[in-house]
C-alpha cells in the first residue's frame, strides 16, 4: 500500500514547514497593508477595492490563500490522524481535507477575481 502514496509523510512535512514559513512573510505584508493607514480607513470599501485592483497585492492575497489552506488543512489532517490509525480513517481524512482545501481555494479565488473586476 505504501508504494501507492503520491507523497511520503516526510515530504508532506517539508511542504508543511515551507508553507508555514512562507505564510508568515505574506501575512506580514497583508497586515502591514492594514497598518500603513488608520485602521478604520483600511476597512473602507473604496480602499479594499483599490487593494484588489493592485496586481502585486492580488498575487500576495492569492498566495496567502493557497499557503494557509495547504498548511491549515494539512495540519488538520495530522491532528485527525493522531487520534486514530486505521487505513480507512486515513483515506477518509485525506480525501475530506484535500476536498475542503480545494473548495476554500476556489471560493477565495472567485472573490479575488470578482473584486478585481469591480
Amino acid at each position: 500500500m505504501e508504494s501507492h502514496r503520491v507523497l511520503k509523510e516526510s515530504q508532506i512535512m517539508k511542504i508543511h514547514y515551507i508553507t508555514g514559513i512562507a505564510a508568515i512573510f505574506v501575512v506580514a505584508i497583508h497586515i502591514l497593508m492594514r497598518l500603513i493607514v488608520p485602521f478604520e480607513l483600511s476597512l473602507e470599501y473604496d480602499y479594499i477595492i483599490a487593494n484588489y485592483k493592485n496586481i502585486i497585492y492580488v498575487l500576495i492575497l492569492e498566495s496567502i490563500l493557497v499557503l494557509i489552506s495547504l498548511h491549515g488543512f494539512n495540519g488538520m489532517r495530522i491532528i485527525l490522524l493522531e487520534l486514530r490509525q486505521t487505513k480507512r480513517w486515513e483515506n477518509m481524512v485525506t480525501v475530506v481535507t484535500i476536498s475542503a482545501m480545494i473548495a476554500l481555494i476556489a471560493f477565495g479565488t472567485r472573490t479575488i477575481i470578482l473584486a478585481n473586476g469591480l
Binding site: 470599501y45 479594499i48 477595492i49 484588489y52 490563500l65 494557509i68 489552506s69 491549515g72 488543512f73 495540519g75 488538520m76 476554500l104 471560493f107 477565495g108 472567485r110 472573490t111 470578482l114 473584486a115 469591480l118
Partner: peptide, 15 residues
C-alpha cells in the same frame, strides 16, 4: 483555520 475560513467568507461579501 476556523478563523481563516470565516475571514475568506467575510471578505467575499465585498463582491
Amino acid at each position: 483555520l476556523i478563523y481563516f475560513i470565516g475571514h475568506v467568507y467575510e471578505t467575499s461579501t465585498i463582491v
